[in-house]
Design a protein around this nucleic acid. Structure first.
Length: 188
DNA sequence: GGGCCGATATTCT
DNA sequence: GAATATCGGCCCG
């Protein structure tokens, strides 16, 4: 069952936690990739100094201020793409959930080719890695993920316990524990 | 396993 | 000019 717009119309932090365990599906040409989301992070609005949306709307971040349930893809460190889903409650002007890691389930052979490795645990265990594995670039900016398209999210597994930690790779707002994850070894 | 480094677009100072 | 929601290669050990 595809997650509805309503799912994303809640506080970004809640949505980030609820996305752990869900299934993400990516269609590119004749390949259908899929995986279970194992790690996410919430990035909110002007209340969150680490968020791309902490200041004003830019060419890069505008999706974070627009329709919830759509993709926000950005290019970072001059090299890598990262995938987010726009999510926020009415209390905030912007917000998105960074998908930091997935457990690959379909088209694993193609992911190995895309990633130039056959080490399963290294295929999509990072935000830059999963976009390489799934062939996601800034061309995939603004896709509506609440309907069957080239990128969408459905129900998946039911996590027993979700780990809560500070976000990775940030220096501002480092006290916020908005990183959510599960250990795939507990489920697969 | 961990520590350092280089790759370099977008945004901020 | 500096920092950044990163990663792979290198060095260890």
């Amino acid at each position: 069952m595809i997650l509805s717009r309503k799912f994303y119309e809640r506080d970004t932090v809640i949505v980030a936690k609820d996305l752990v365990g869900k299934k993400i599906i990516r269609v590119n040409k004749n390949t259908i990739y899929s995986g279970i989301i194992i790690e996410t992070e919430a990035y909110r609005a002007s209340d969150d100094a680490a968020s791309h949306a902490t200041n004003k709307i830019t060419k890069r971040n505008h999706a974070m201020f627009e329709t919830v349930g759509k993709s926000y893809v950005y290019f970072t460190y001059g090299m890598y793409n990262c995938l987010n889903v726009v999510a926020r409650s009415k209390k905030f002007s912007a917000g998105a959930v960074l998908i930091r890691g997935i457990y690959p389930t379909d088209s694993i052979k193609k992911m190995e080719k895309n990633r130039k490795t056959n080490k399963f645990s290294n295929l999509a265990n990072g935000p830059g890695k999963l976009t390489q594995a799934f062939e996601i670039t800034t061309k995939d900016y603004g896709i509506d993920m609440t309907k069957k398209s080239d990128l969408y999210i459905t129900t998946g597994i039911n996590p027993k316990k979700i780990n809560i930690k500070p976000r990775i790779g940030i220096s501002k707002a480092a006290d916020k524990k908005w990183n959510f994850s599960i250990n795939p070894k507990d489920y697969f």
